[in-house]
Amino acid sequence: MSDCANVEMRERLPELLHGTLPDALRRDTEAHVASCADCAAELELLREVRQMLDARPAPRIDTAAIVGALPRPSARPIASAPSRRSMVPSMVWRMAATVTLLALGSLSLPGVRRIFGAGTPADSLVVDTSVTPQVAVIPETTGAVTPTPAGTAVRLASLTAGGGVTDLADEDLEALIGALDRLEATPGAEPEANPMARIITTGTGDS
């Protein structure tokens, strides 16, 4: 068998075999094959190879076992009736994680206060540089000196903790839950697309 000189047609033969060519290309290719003995013979060879490969015994695959081993979906609310089993545990864990994070945050702040000694309450700390020009000094620290422009005040009044979920605005709570959703116990497994493309510019042999 010689090779047809029409490389474009030869390239379409596997797709013609699988019926994946668009209609226009399929008709065009079928018309070519009908008039080209080389392409007809090549298509027949491909068909025989496929038949031989299809004759291989399929490995025994227990699809139910695979499904059972899959991780649970992330369980965001869906319109099409999600199963209760998939939704409830995830929501419980998310809320529990949120409360835990807030509790830890509220516990850590008093500890910081103890370390730095008695000082200004964190939720109303105001350093007015009109009183202490040029620098604002945090009490009983060693070297923690923060230069500030004269006439400005560094206000930390927004630093609050320990108030529970009610202290969070809706958007903050949503952002927190979203961040929790993105946490993964296992790293992503999607392979880098075509990693050899960086180092292989031409391919002329077998690897």
């Binding site: 490969l53 291989r56 399929a58 490995p59 695959i61 699809t63 695979i66 499904v67 899959l70 649970r72 979906p73 992330s74 369980a75 965001r76 609310p77 869906i78 319109a79 099409s80 999600p82 199963s83 998939s86 939704m87």
Partner: peptide, 25 residues
């Protein structure tokens, strides 16, 4: 659909591709 919580979609994907992956392996 699976990402929105529909676990049946996973079953469908597995049934659709598992044999082909097995043959390839």
């Amino acid at each position: 659909r699976w990402q929105r919580g529909d676990e049946r979609a996973a079953t469908s994907l597995v049934e659709r591709h598992a044999t082909a992956v097995g043959r390839y392996v």
